[in-house]
Design a protein around this nucleic acid. Structure first.
Lengths: 227, 227
DNA sequence: GCTTCTAATTTGTTATCACAGATCAGGCCG
DNA sequence: CGGCCTGATCTGTGATAACAAATTAGAAGC
């Protein structure tokens, strides 16, 4: 394990485990279809099964994990239709968030977004994939935060987590955009200039390109997971 | 309690407790701001604190409950802005669902919706408020199911639950519509005739009227809850 | 009479234990 | 050699107990 104890999350063990598991899912440590076992995780983290059990239950409620009939949690196997649906909903909701953010945000908000994107690009070219994934997530969540819609933020987080396990496939692809054409730039510009239509379309383009690339790769991802 | 054991939900106690709590929230048994205590609930249901704890944790994850800093779950106190946001998102998502349902549904699906609405109206005029609330929820969820979008259904369920505790206020109001003008009729017609624009607008009108009425009542609801 | 400090109680968290259903291995029978 | 049965192990679930933090109640002091 990375650190002796999964550091973040507060003083409650269950919250730490939840946060740690979430990070592992984002980093695609678990493959789609993999079953997560209570005692195995508990032993690895050096805690009792109880808080692990709570964390797994919550992740199931959030849609990040799937509960099988015989009561065992596994990483969801995303079908083609389901992946399309998640991305369509993300495009709708994040599009709305970007538009709202463009109406509300101040210049320093756009600067913060630009800084996140810069860190992401840097991690990308340096080949630090996990960091790149984390910064990409941070970018999208920051847009939702800027919209001042906490309920929407929660929904988007849930959707994001559902395709988290697939993101590792992204890092094995060639670049989706030339750096200067990355849709994030138009998102930032739209938010900086108060152009809500631009911001919405740009984030939707970002998601659509991402979705199409992922859907093309889906067969091989699921085949690999079936082993 | 209504039944000696909260019957539904499967053979897992935690699932039964979750289902029971969800129903109690929809029926506004708990007032906004009320704290839900582990041992109290456990004793009332005749189970140990463990499954109650899991159920509460899941409801927090679903947004139906709110976790306070000092680690105690309570029914959320909805602010004006938050209620508006929830309803706006419901209008967007359920609007999409209704439109999609209109494209996909068969005649017998529209019949089923009409049957649900009939039961709801009947409960309404007979003064059986809890049943009316349940049937209303069933109507909206059925529309989402007909859209064939399980991910969207999950999101809408979460949003719905967030304003569940407020629904009791509805039953104390006069009718929002004359029976023959109820927006559900246009939803059913849109779905039956494949008119997706009509279905979307009708369900959005339903939600908007509901939201406006609730927002008008919100001050007195929250004042009552502060006691 | 009101505030404040302290002690008792309450409340959530976690670990441990006991149990039941599922899963898997090995061996038996066909 | 293969299918099926049986027992050992694995895995999740629920109850109980111990612990810590927080809340409350009561009494003392102003």
């Amino acid at each position: 394990m990375d650190a002796e104890i999964p550091l973040p999350g507060g003083d409650r063990i269950a919250a730490r485990v939840h946060h740690w598991l979430r990070l592992q899912l984002m980093r695609s440590r678990f493959r789609p279809g993999e079953k997560l076992k209570l005692r195995t995780l508990a032993e690895e983290l050096g805690v009792s099964p109880t808080p692990v059990r709570e964390a797994l239950g919550r992740l199931v409620s959030e849609g990040a994990l799937e509960q099988l009939d015989h009561r065992s949690a596994r990483v969801p196997l995303l079908s083609d239709e389901r992946l399309r649906e998640v991305c369509e909903l993300r495009a709708d909701l994040e599009g709305k968030a970007a538009a709202r953010a463009a109406e509300l945000a101040k210049p320093q908000d756009a600067d913060r977004l630009a800084a996140i994107h810069a860190r992401m690009s840097e991690a990308r070219v340096a080949g630090r994939s996990p960091e790149m994934l984390v910064e990409n997530e941070r970018f999208h969540m920051e847009v939702c935060t800027l919209a001042g819609m906490p309920v929407l933020l929660r929904l988007v987080e849930s959707l994001w987590l559902q395709c988290g396990p697939l993101n590792a496939a992204l890092t094995r692809m060639r670049f989706l955009h030339r750096p200067e054409e990355h849709p994030h730039h138009d998102v930032i510009r739209g938010i900086r200039e108060g152009d809500s239509a631009l911001a919405r379309l740009a984030i939707q383009r970002d998601i659509t390109v991402y979705a199409d690339a992922l859907i093309r790769r889906l067969p091989e991802i699921n085949v690999a997971a079936r082993e």
